[in-house]
């Protein structure tokens, strides 16, 4: 499993932003996209705390959420919080690039989100 890059795809015809990649725009079926990187902080859209983890994770729990960056890219990421009491939908999160899992002892880097303020 390689490191997880987040590249958004902005439809050159209608402007809809996609992540992950599609061959045709979900809205207008356009086929030309501009590749964009996530920008700025992110707004928390949905979250949960998972206690029954899948194979490959040794943690007691994971807090996972979906957040939207300032330029419209929406992505899933792990949230750096000890409890859900620190979270609410609509709050701002700071993106950081850290290991999200280990495969055969090697870190896989991906999106983590830190609550702000």
């Amino acid at each position: 499993m390689s490191n997880l890059q987040i590249t958004g795809y902005k439809c050159k015809h209608c402007g809809r932003i996609h992540y992950p990649r599609h061959e045709q725009c979900l809205q207008c079926h356009g086929r030309e996209f501009e590749s964009i990187a996530p920008e700025g902080n992110a707004t928390l859209l949905a979250y949960t705390q998972i206690f029954n983890l899948p194979w490959g994770f040794d943690e007691r729990f994971l807090i996972i959420g979906v957040a939207q960056f300032g330029n419209g890219i929406k992505s899933m990421g792990q949230i750096k919080a000890e409890s859900l009491d620190q979270l609410h939908t609509g709050m701002q999160l700071r993106p950081v690039w850290e290991p999200v899992r280990y495969v055969y002892g090697e870190p896989v880097y991906g999106l983590k989100l830190e609550p702000m303020g």
Binding site: M1, T48, L53, I64, G65, R101, L111
Partner: peptide, 21 residues
């Protein structure tokens, strides 16, 4: 396989997010 699975999300996790919303 790229934007969800590596983060450790599970189907109960998906359902948890959906339930809160």
């Amino acid at each position: 396989p790229e934007s969800e699975y590596p983060y450790g999300i599970t189907l109960p996790g998906m359902a948890g997010m959906f339930t809160r919303l």
